[in-house]
Design a protein around this nucleic acid. Structure first.
Lengths: 329, 329
DNA sequence: CTCGGGCGTGTAAACGATTACAAGAACGAT
DNA sequence: ATCGTTCTTGTAATCGTTTACACGCCCGAG
C-alpha cells in the first residue's frame, strides 16, 4: 500500500481533484464538500506530497542555513536566532554543514540552485572567486553572514572585528595589562584575516607591540592544543586575546597546565561570546560580535529578498560589545 | 531571465529532452551528442531542478536528522558520525531541531511523511502515544536514536544508561566515594527516566543510599543554575553523578561558587562524553554512552531500510564506557 | 418568463524532470 | 540485395500537485 494521492482522495470522496486541493488549501467550498473531503483525507491518511507541491508552486517553504562546523558554539547562537525568525515566517529551517574547505561551500551553493530550498543563509569561512561566482549565479536567494566582496551582489551581514578587537584591548589596558598576545585561527580565512588586522590596529591605537603571536590551524579546541604551546614559548605576556571562544578555552587549559593562573598571571579574552564563554571556567570575558543579531538580521534580509528579489543588496554591519567575565581581572 | 529548463537546453542543443536527460545521467550517447549537450548546458548555466527530479524518481537524496537542542554538545558528536556515513552513501544530510516538546516531534515526523527527505533519523527526548502513531504512519523510513516502544515498528539504536550509571558509580566507589548524589534532567523524558532508574539500581548494587537528588527542568546549562543549588542544600555528599555533561559543567560552577573543590571535596561525573567534557575545567570524567557509534549505527540502519523497507526492525543497543578525567580523584 | 451574474465544481493544462516505447539508421550476415 | 540486429534518438506518458478556464446551477432583476 503506497501513499494515497490526491486522486485517491478525490475518488474516495466522490469529488474532483480540484475540489480536494481547494479545501486542503482553504479556498471557499460548501459545508458538505469540506466535510466529505476531510473525511476521505482522514480515512486514507492522506498527506500531500511536498515534492509535487513545490514543483508546482515553485516554493519549498524550506530555508537552509549552512555553517562550517556544528561543533563551534557560535553557530548555535546564530542558529537559534535564525530559527526564531524563519519559523515565525512560516518556513522550516534546515541546517547543513560545509566543512572548512571552500570547495564544499561552492558545491553547496551550486546544489542549492537546484531548488532544494527557497533561500540560503551561508556563513563562509573561506571565500574565493569560485564561491563569489557560484553565489552570483545561484538562482535562489542567498544571504551571507560574513564578508564577501560586494560584486557578489548579495545581502550581507557582518561583524565588526576591528572594533571588537579594540574593545578587548581597551579593556585589557584599562586593567593594566600591556603585554598582550594574540592566538589567531587560520589567517587564510576571512575571520582569521579580519581579526589579525583588527588586533594589529588595536595595539597600534595604544602604542603597543604584540607580546606574542600564534596561529591555530582551525578555529577548534583541538587545534588550540597545538598552537597554544607555540604561544607559551614566549613568556613575556600578561594577557591573550583569542580569535574565538574555543581557542580561548583551549588556551586556558594549557595555561593551567603550565601553572599559570587566569586571570592573575594571564588575562584571557575570547571572541563570539558563545554559550561556551559562560560555561568555561573561569567564565570567559568575550567579545560579543553580535552572532544572535547577525543571525536575526540575516534571516530578515533573506525573507525580504524572497519577497522581492529585485531590491538592491544591503550590507549590514552589526556592532560588537564586550561581555566581561572572570578571565580578566 | 528565469531558470533554464531541460527543454531550453534541448532546444539550444538541437536535440530532444530525452537525450539531454540521458547525457546528464551518464547513459550511453555518442561523442557528438554528449558534446552538444555539454556545451548547451554550460552556455545556459543549466542546473536540473531537484524538485522535479525527485517527484519523478521518488527520491530526494536527502536525509534528515532531527535533534531536540542544537546547543547540546552530545548531538554534535552524533551529527558528525551520521554525516560521515550518509555522505559516504551519496546523501546530503540536513539537520533540523524539534525543541523539547513532543508535539514538535510529532509535527516533524508527520511533515516528513510529505517527502521532504528519503529518511528521518530522530532522537526524541519525550515519547508519547501520538509520536509512536506518527512514526508508525510515516511513509518514509524512520530510525530512532533512543528508546521507543517496539510497537512503533522501527529500527532503534539506544544507549545502555543503567550500565553507564553502573560504570560511573563503580568508578566513584573504587575511588572511595560513597556519599553519591544525582543531578538529573527532567524525569518525564526518556533519558531522564532511564538515568534515574539506572542510578537507583547502581547504588543498590553497592548497597548505598543516594546522598542527594535534584532534577533540572531541562538538560541545559541554564537549567543547572536552578537545580544545582537545590542539591547543595544537602552537604552530605562527596560525589555527584550528572545526567549529562551540560548539567555537570553547570554544577561544577556552583560547587566552585560554594567554595568546594572538584575533585577533592566533590567528585563529579557527567554523561555523554561530549566535546564539552574535555573542554571543561577540570576536564570532566564522563560516561561515554556511545553517541558517535549510535549515530553511525543509526545511519547505517536508515540506509539499509531505504534499500529494503521490508526488513524486520532491528533494535540495537550500544554499550557504554567511561572516560576518566580530572573531575574524579 | 427570461436573462445575466454569482458561485461552486470539474476538466485539463501546466510545473520540470525521467523513461517506456517506437522508429530510424547503420551494419553485418546470408 | 535483403533481412535482422543493434544502437541512437525522439515522442509522449508519467510523477502528484495547483489553478486557469469553462460549465452548470441557482437566484434575483427586469
Amino acid at each position: 500500500m503506497s501513499r494515497p494521492t490526491i486522486a485517491g482522495v478525490a475518488r474516495a470522496a466522490g469529488v474532483s481533484v480540484a475540489s480536494v486541493s481547494r479545501v486542503l488549501n482553504g479556498l471557499p467550498a460548501t459545508e458538505e464538500m469540506t466535510e466529505r473531503v476531510r473525511r476521505a483525507v482522514a480515512e486514507l491518511g492522506y498527506v500531500p506530497d511536498a515534492r509535487a507541491r513545490s514543483l508546482k508552486v515553485g516554493r519549498t517553504f524550506q530555508l537552509t542555513l549552512a555553517v562550517a562546523d556544528v561543533g563551534n558554539p557560535v553557530y548555535v547562537t546564530m542558529m537559534r536566532a535564525v530559527e526564531e525568525v524563519v519559523s515565525a515566517a512560516g518556513y522550516r529551517l534546515v541546517v547543513t554543514t560545509t566543512g572548512p574547505e571552500v570547495v564544499d561551500e561552492v558545491a553547496l551553493v551550486q546544489g542549492m540552485a537546484r531548488g532544494y530550498a527557497d533561500g540560503l543563509l551561508i556563513s563562509p569561512i573561506r571565500v574565493d572567486e569560485d564561491l563569489v561566482k557560484a553565489i552570483r549565479a545561484c538562482e535562489v536567494p542567498v544571504v551571507v553572514a560574513g564578508s564577501v566582496p560586494s560584486r557578489a551582489g548579495v545581502d550581507t551581514v557582518r561583524a565588526n572585528s576591528p572594533k571588537g578587537m579594540l574593545l578587548a584591548v581597551d579593556h585589557l589596558v584599562s586593567r593594566g595589562r600591556t603585554r598582550i598576545a594574540f592566538l589567531n585561527g587560520p589567517a587564510d580565512t576571512v575571520p582569521g584575516a579580519a581579526r589579525a588586522k583588527g588586533f594589529a590596529e588595536a595595539l597600534k591605537a595604544h602604542d603597543l607591540e604584540p607580546a606574542a603571536l600564534a596561529e591555530a590551524s582551525d578555529f577548534t579546541f583541538a587545534a588550540s592544543r597545538i598552537a597554544a604551546p607555540e604561544l607559551l614559548k614566549n613568556s613575556g605576556f600578561d594577557a591573550v586575546v583569542c580569535a574565538n571562544d574555543l581557542l580561548a578555552v583551549g588556551l586556558m587549559h594549557q595555561l593551567a597546565a603550565a601553572g599559570l593562573d587566569v586571570p592573575d598571571d594571564v588575562a584571557v579574552v575570547g571572541m563570539d561570546d558563545s554559550e561556551l564563554a559562560e560555561q568555561s571556567f573561569p567564565p570567559l570575558t568575550s567579545v560579543n560580535l553580535g552572532s544572535a543579531e547577525r543571525g536575526r538580521r540575516a534571516a530578515e534580509l533573506l525573507l525580504a529578498r524572497i519577497e522581492d528579489n529585485e531590491r538592491t543588496p544591503r550590507r549590514i554591519v552589526v556592532q560588537p560589545s564586550l561581555s566581561i567575565r572572570r578571565s580578566t581581572p
